[in-house]
């Protein structure tokens, strides 16, 4: 091999090496830019999430610091958890029942702050109406429909009960509504009700007021006594209602359901039908109504349910 040939081979191989190097470099570059892209294309980067790193520590120091902090946190956390669990368990049942009752009453006050009598429950087409029987409390005793009378207490200018017949109620403006009844168990059903608005009943049979003047449910509802009590003739079932819910336009003293007089299991001859409360408040077969200053007793409230039970 001549000198010249040797040289050209050397140059050739060097060119080759250079080429290989270039390819390798390009490959590396591509990889790093891939990597950079990958790092840049990162949610933490996009949102500028910061890391919080401490000072440099030796293995031992790091271990010690971690143990110290762990111990502290686990002790505080564990103590809090135990205090919570045992504190709750040790709380007497009576205290808990009081707590729940007060929570219901607190919720009631919050509800009343936001309450507006102008808001109405949606009404449905008449043909959506169905029926479902639930709750026979107060309906089991001997009962003669013909003998039924409604007794009303707490009226203005009279000390004895007012005694009314169904015709007296039917003489009041007739109102019909098709609303969704909600049971506190969770189900709901659309029902069609016909009866007298409770507010019309109040206008006709004036209850006592706080200041002794004639009641004016429209302009001065606060002057009315705050509660209404309703009881079945056998006194087995009883509900308490707040005056704002009583005065709501969708609260009826109903005598018809789905276009027919109430059947016994739906509360004949007269029941409460209201869009403002769960079914537990919509007492069947009302025997007496009282306007009162005191929060009336309530069958289901006595059994741990919300006295207000309002929508």
């Amino acid at each position: 091999m001549s000198e010249q040939e040797k040289k050209s081979t050397e140059i050739e191989s060097q060119v080759l090496i250079e080429k290989v190097r270039e390819i390798e470099l390009a490959k590396q570059k591509a990889e790093t830019s891939d990597l950079q892209n990958l790092v840049r294309d990162n949610t933490a980067r996009i949102l500028n999430e910061k890391r919080e790193l401490g000072t440099s520590l030796s293995d031992d120091e790091a271990k010690r610091e971690m143990s110290r902090r762990s111990r502290r946190s686990f002790l505080i956390g564990g103590a809090t958890a135990l205090a919570g669990i045992f504190g709750w368990r040790l709380l007497p049942d009576e205290t808990k029942q009081n707590l729940y009752r007060r929570a219901f009453e607190f919720n009631e006050r919050v509800s009343q702050i936001f309450y507006s009598p102008k808001r109405l429950a949606p009404e449905f087409p008449r043909e959506f109406a169905g029926a479902r029987v639930n709750g026979m409390e107060g309906l089991s005793g001997e009962f003669n429909l013909a003998d039924w009378r409604l007794r009303v207490g707490g009226l203005a200018n009279r000390s004895e009960d007012l005694i009314l017949t169904l015709d007296d109620i039917k003489a009041l403006p007739r109102t019909e509504m098709t609303t969704e009844l909600k049971c506190i168990e969770g189900w709901s059903i659309v029902c069609n009700w016909t009866g007298a608005r409770f507010s019309d009943f109040i206008a006709a049979y004036q209850p006592k007021t706080r200041n002794g003047n004639a009641p004016d449910a429209v302009n001065n509802p606060e002057n009315l006594l705050p509660y209404v009590s309703m009881i079945t003739p056998d006194a087995d079932y009883y509900v308490g209602m707040d005056m704002p819910s009583i005065l709501h336009p969708q609260t009826l003293l109903a005598y018809e359901m789905n276009g027919a007089p109430l059947t016994p299991e739906h509360g004949a001859p007269l029941r409460l039908a209201t869009a403002t409360k769960y079914g537990i408040k919509q007492i069947k077969r009302i025997g007496r109504i009282d306007f009162t200053d005191e929060r009336p007793k309530d069958f289901w409230a006595e059994r741990g349910y919300d006295w207000y039970a309002g929508h």
Partner: peptide, 23 residues
């Protein structure tokens, strides 16, 4: 090898997280 402590979860987040669990 040298170590660092990295703060992962602020105190408030830890309390709120663990309070949320029983709730």
């Amino acid at each position: 090898m040298a170590k660092q402590l990295e703060k992962k979860h602020p105190l408030a987040i830890r309390w709120l997280h663990w309070i949320n669990f029983p709730l």
